[in-house]
Design a protein around this nucleic acid. Structure first.
Lengths: 222, 222
DNA sequence: CGCGTTTTTGAAGACCTTCAAACTGAGTGG
DNA sequence: CCACTCAGTTTGAAGGTCTTCAAAAACGCG
């Protein structure tokens, strides 16, 4: 219980709990557990049963699906403040994907009982959960649209424009291989797509940092 | 109000309202409206604002995303008893996709107010909505997995195995073009994939009806 | 500086797509 | 009852985009 204050502070600040009654947050915080993770650590595997909800405090997490052989497909990249694993928990299902820490970080884990109880008692929290799921649906739909209807460089352009941009500059926060997989591309193809955008004078690339030279034309590509 | 009894009967029988308090169903039914649709009719377009929830009573509906040019991508095919358009409604968003009737049918439309109110008042209904969204998430994830990790014939095999099968036989309930698009394939590719499964002795094809000759090997393909 | 990892580059190949045309089959009208 | 038509499907050949394989280059870290 020594860690409760810290957990509570985190929970209070997170998107998932924005505007939620203090009492509700307190209860969730009381039930939750801090889970430190180290780089590369697998948080859950496909087939594990979902007994709770994860919220990421610090670090980054990769959600992915592995096939029988080597290749994996990254379905989402999670940053601080975001939650994951909701769908399987809501359905009392087995996870259909794997979650893995990309770096050392801290998770907050809230057991299903507490989530269910809170959702039942506090309509506001219930609506928040629903919103989170709906956002995921739209995000997944967007990914499907990208893979099916758009070329490699169009997908890369779209990705860049959705990153946090400061003074026309952005920074790839993940391995290029990981980003490539999220976009449904091989690392080689991703690299070539970046080259292409560079040659068209739309961006300048220096390692992981990318300068957006022509936002308008970049948008029209995506 | 003359149509209320019929609407109520439909609502009571639907998955989305299974196990929901009678009072709740009654209220939703009272607020809902029947909307007949004819073949090819567009129910909503991308960009329309979502002011309610659709439930399909009879007929079939195609959810799709169009690109600037010709090609469209089918993201889901809806049958009687299923609901759609939840995500955009929950988020008070614009629709990110289009819904179109594939044949004459009947929709039930429930205004957002009524849904919100019911979700707030009846935790059971709220949980149902959430379940529905969670299922959609998993389904979309599965589609992403298919497109990214599996070949054309693997996807077709998977699709066939997820259809209602009676006595080893199933029937394609939609245009092959529509199914192809849902699988992220061109009609020609879909046709060739079916041929390939046929040549491997896994299925027999006669128009829209398909005989599954070797379910086990078919499963191992998918 | 040296080593392992990540990224890039090049060339060859695979799978799906595109384009074009033939085929099928259900609905229509003679 | 049999053409006829038209949408839907299948088939063939050519073409593209992405992938694969291989190797070099760049990067990061001890």
């Amino acid at each position: 219980m020594a860690n409760q204050p810290a957990v509570h502070d985190w929970i209070s600040g997170l998107v998932l709990f924005e505007g939620i009654a203090k009492e509700c947050r307190d209860r969730l915080a009381a039930a939750s557990r801090e889970v430190p993770v180290i780089r590369q650590e697998v948080i859950y595997r496909r087939g594990d049963s979902a007994t709770g909800l994860f919220v990421l405090a610090t670090g980054h997490v990769k959600l992915s699906i592995q096939s029988d052989k080597g290749p994996e497909k990254v379905i989402d990249l999670i940053g601080p403040g975001q939650s994951f694993g909701e769908a399987a928990m809501v359905l009392s299902h087995l996870y259909q994907h794997q979650a893995q820490a990309l770096e050392d970080g801290l998770l907050i884990w809230i057991p299903k009982d507490a989530v269910d109880k809170a959702a039942e008692t506090y309509a506001g929290f219930s609506r928040r959960l629903m919103t989170s799921l709906a956002l995921q649906c739209e995000s997944l739909q967007h990914d499907i649209e990208l893979v099916n209807l758009h070329s490699a460089s169009e997908r890369v352009a779209d990705y860049l424009l959705h990153q946090p941009i400061e003074e026309g500059k952005t920074r790839l926060r993940f391995d290029k291989r990981v980003i490539a997989s999220k976009l449904g591309l091989k690392p080689e193809t991703f690299s070539r797509a970046l080259q292409q955008l560079k040659m068209q004078g739309l961006i300048a690339v220096k390692g992981a940092s990318i300068l957006i030279l022509d936002p308008n034309r970049l948008r029209s590509v995506a």
